[in-house]
Write a protein that binds this DNA or RNA. Sequence first.
DNA 1: TAGAAACTTGACCAGCAGGTCAAGAAAGTG
DNA 2: CACTTTCTTGACCTGCTGGTCAAGTTTCTA
Lengths: 211, 211
Amino acid sequence: MIVNKKQGKQSNIRAKSQEKILDAAQQEFILQSYKGATVQSIADRAGLPKANILYYFKNKENIYHAVLEQTLNMWDEGIGDIVIEDGPKVAIEKFIAAKVKMSFTYPSASKMHAIEVIQGAPHLKEFARTYLRQWVRTKAKLFQHWIDNGEMNDVDPVSLIILIFSSTQHYADFETQILTILNRAEYEPEDIEHVTKFLTDIILRGCGLKK
Amino acid sequence: MIVNKKQGKQSNIRAKSQEKILDAAQQEFILQSYKGATVQSIADRAGLPKANILYYFKNKENIYHAVLEQTLNMWDEGIGDIVIEDGPKVAIEKFIAAKVKMSFTYPSASKMHAIEVIQGAPHLKEFARTYLRQWVRTKAKLFQHWIDNGEMNDVDPVSLIILIFSSTQHYADFETQILTILNRAEYEPEDIEHVTKFLTDIILRGCGLKK
DNA sequence: TAGAAACTTGACCAGCAGGTCAAGAAAGTG
DNA sequence: CACTTTCTTGACCTGCTGGTCAAGTTTCTA
């Protein structure tokens, strides 16, 4: 874990500094990528001297790992959960709503993840191979169950999950491009609602869950 | 343009070398990002000495621009075109098919573009502001026309276009992750068909274009 | 076939990035 | 209030990177 276990309640100096560093590092890693983000640039953004950064994290690689871990935890917490009792309609609604909300609320987490994956996921292979693959399979089985039960159209469950991933994350990862196309400066709260409604509508109907 | 206009039919040495360099550079820029891709690594991948790379392209920035331009041209050629005579059903089918095919055939082009956009699109702002925005608006108007004509459901045309972009590109950009989830080594030709069919089915039905 | 143009390449250089270090300042503790 | 631990930081070092150069080789062309 990131937080030093040796700390009790005392000395939040460490925690405070680490948080500042990780926030700054995340931005730099997104904007400049791993090699382009220098320890100095992270230091400048965090408002600390370079040597101080290296005091808290032995080296740049460690900073990167910490940022990535933080990102994955956020993904894990934000994804929500769907259970068999939900039924396909509620499950899809919950799933889309959770992912859209996360994309608009923490776009940086999604961007970090995206850059990693596009570049071949050198640090995420293990996460994908174990955790994510299992997650997708478990949820796919749920959908398959509902399909077998005649509760929704016979669509490929894995493709459906991928569709929900892609269409929701896109608003985080491609934020810049979408805003440019729309000729807007930044997202507004209503956008979350609008996108959620649009995607839910299309996908539910696409699955035969809406007349 | 990339190709030196001064060349007639003679001397394809230049063309051959430039192509090798651009291919190598594209891979390096994807795998290592701009700063991480060194002229030496591009040279090694291209099988040429470093000084030779700098002979054909004055500096690293120029290589990057050339790769990006090539990428955008590919996007432009591969996107296909839809016209009012198509009607909504054929238009969506053509659009999805073209983008899926491109994603599976030239994933590198999509990845280059994605990295650029995620990092704030420093080199693509102009392209998006003029060309892409116009493209989306023109196509959105087509869909709006069909909606007003009662030929399809009343969905937001811009969101629809974004949905098609995101769900198709995802197979190129997140190739690594999808293959890992599926526990496969690489895509196979049938995948193009399968994904095209799946997305077309869901989205057509989502738009009320399929019983 | 001779001279010009295009190409090739090893050697070199200046600047910057990651990382170390040691000396000192602050904070915690008994 | 001693003294230990944690924190802070400027100075420094080494290796690598983008880019230059000039001497040579190959290809083109008249």
